[in-house]
């Protein structure tokens, strides 16, 4: 499972290469590059959603709101308050981390559906504050002229391609953190909570604290994604904090694969590609995408990466079973779950 050529590893390398090479193969297509860069900022936030929903099993619908906090902290500090980008981004990250932790204290007293409803209300309040607090956020006129990050030496982030690679570095970081968490005892803790809070408690897991940390980590990634988004876009409005954004991220992660390491990035770029494809139909895209969500959740809740992992695991387990214990009847269900837990990438 740790051989150099495991399919998961090859898949990871392929995805990484595709992301690295994308701007080069697209040549001068600035529009496409912009879509990719914006997509990468979303994907960072989707990694946050993956931590709380995919690993811990809590449906947080405040995610778009925390993304919006990141967007507006960077947006307002670099314009109205003339801060530089990097300290603004740092404030955005700290604000969403602390905000998430404190909100989590109350939010995580609720369970299951109540948690979803609670966080949805929280998301709406954030949105309302951003879209109505005229004197601070400029409400519907939005914030324009958000600064690019300050460069180092010859590195100039106002170049779209350089900005893309900057966002990509953060995206790979988010993916790596997810990978490390999954492989470690922390991942085991979160998955234990997702599977059964009672059992997790009985083996000594501090369920409340761990959920709270996972929630804070998820809002932090949302804030980071939002802060970068503000710089990429240059102009931001209240829709960057809306509940629709939360729902879109939910779709990204569902398509890609909940709880997997590659799911968020694969799902985000694939669905954004579909969005672009259906762009001529504007809002009608949900005539197709709405049913796709429903069909996915009913028939394919593991998402693309989840199913690829399952396939790889099944082949491998068949091989292993064949050589080790030929007499034993094969159990498909066993194989699929093995992948899910052990090496979902």
């Amino acid at each position: 499972m740790t051989t150099t050529f495991s399919p998961q590893r090859i898949g990871t390398v392929l995805v990484a290469l595709a992301l690295l090479a994308a701007p080069l193969t697209l040549g001068g297509e600035e529009y496409v590059l912009r879509v990719l860069t914006v997509g990468a900022t979303y994907a960072i936030a989707v990694y946050g959603m993956n931590l709380i929903l995919g690993l811990t099993g809590q449906l947080s619908l405040a995610h778009g709101g925390f993304f919006g906090i990141g967007v507006y902290v960077v947006g307002l500090l670099t314009t109205d308050y003339h801060w530089a980008f990097w300290p603004s981004l740092a404030v955005a990250v700290v604000a969403t981390a602390v905000g998430g932790y404190v909100a989590g204290v109350v939010a995580l007293r609720t369970h299951e559906e109540y948690f979803a409803i609670f966080t949805m209300a929280m998301g709406f309040i954030i949105f309302l504050v951003i879209s109505r607090w005229e004197s601070v956020t400029h409400a519907h006129s939005g914030v324009s002229g958000v600064k690019f990050p300050e460069g180092f030496g010859a590195v100039d982030f106002s170049e779209p391609i350089v900005m893309y690679y900057l966002v990509l570095v953060f995206l790979l970081g988010a993916a790596y953190v997810t990978y490390a968490v999954r492989r470690s005892g922390i991942g085991r803790t979160l998955v234990a909570i997702r599977t059964s809070e009672d059992l997790a408690r009985s083996i000594g897991v501090n369920v409340g604290l761990n959920k709270q940390l996972a929630f804070a980590a998820s809002t932090t990634l949302a804030g980071l994604g939002g802060g970068l988004f503000a710089a990429v876009q240059g102009f931001v409005g209240p829709s960057a904090a809306g509940i629709d954004l939360t729902f879109e991220m939910l779709m990204f992660i569902l398509v890609g694969g909940l709880g997997t390491v590659l799911g968020p990035v694969v799902g985000t770029f694939l669905v954004l590609f579909l969005f672009e494809f259906f762009q001529d139909f504007e809002a009608y895209r949900f005539l197709v995408l709405g049913p796709i969500i429903v069909v996915l959740v009913i028939f394919a809740p593991r998402g693309i990466v989840g199913y690829l992992n399952q396939f790889v695991g099944r082949v491998r387990s068949r091989r292993a079973n064949g050589s080790r214990n030929p007499g034993r009847p094969h159990d498909d269900r066993k194989a699929e779950s093995t992948t899910d837990v052990k090496e979902a990438l």
Binding site: G185, I186, T195, L199, A200, V205, S337, V341
Partner: peptide, 23 residues
Amino acid sequence: LFEDATVLDNVLSGRIVRSRSTV
């Protein structure tokens, strides 16, 4: 039990409380 997990992963979960390493 953690029904979707392997027997070994189940038992490994019991080690969480004795683990000190952080994220």
